[in-house]
């Protein structure tokens, strides 16, 4: 089991454009650029020192003030026991697109469909990217902050 500093050192040696933060969070947060998301994912899973094989929580976050959407992936290593959070911000909020992680961690297959449904982030390379919960004809993505639905959503 590695501590946060060791994970940081290994990742920094691999890619020096990563951003790290442990502030106000239970885990080590690592931000990666969208174009390096997939390769870093592979490295996290396959590196014998890290072995992050268990992705237990994946979600999206909307940041309208920064004009970006973000994905947040909580990772744990079952054999080694350490944890971290992999995060990636999309380039634009109106046309968000990221590489899929479903070939690295198959569990994200459904998580990515959920994120597409509720945040509108498209995942390149996903084999079955369609809405998960809502009807295919649904307009908009409800978990975005500026989503308006006068019928179904009661705003206080």
């Amino acid at each position: 089991m590695l501590d946060n500093q060791s994970i940081k050192d290994i990742l920094f040696a691999q890619n020096d454009t990563l951003e790290f933060s442990e502030e106000n969070s239970a885990f080590l947060n690592v931000w990666v650029a969208p174009e390096e998301l997939h390769s870093l994912g592979l490295f996290l899973r396959d590196d014998p020192r890290l072995r992050f094989d268990y992705l237990f929580c994946m979600t999206g976050v909307d940041w309208p003030t920064e004009d970006t959407l973000e994905i947040v992936c909580h990772l744990r290593s079952i054999p080694l026991g350490h944890q971290m959070v992999l995060r990636c911000k999309t380039g634009s909020r109106d046309n968000p697109e990221l590489d899929t992680l479903s070939d690295i961690w198959p569990t994200t297959h459904m998580h990515e469909r959920e994120i597409y449904d509720l945040f509108g982030i498209r995942f390149k390379g996903h084999t079955n990217l369609k809405r998960l919960f809502l009807d295919p004809s649904w307009d908009g993505h409800p978990l975005k902050k500026d989503y308006v639905d006068e019928v179904n959503l009661i705003v206080k």
Binding site: F56, C57, T59, T107, M110, H111
Partner: peptide, 26 residues
């Protein structure tokens, strides 16, 4: 799992429930 991003207000900025059934179904 309950994941909360708080901005200090009385409601969470973002709240995610990582439910066991969701992963088990996949």
């Amino acid at each position: 799992g309950v994941y909360v991003i708080s901005d200090g207000k009385k409601s969470p900025y973002r709240m995610k429930f990582r439910s066991p059934g969701f992963s088990n179904l996949s």
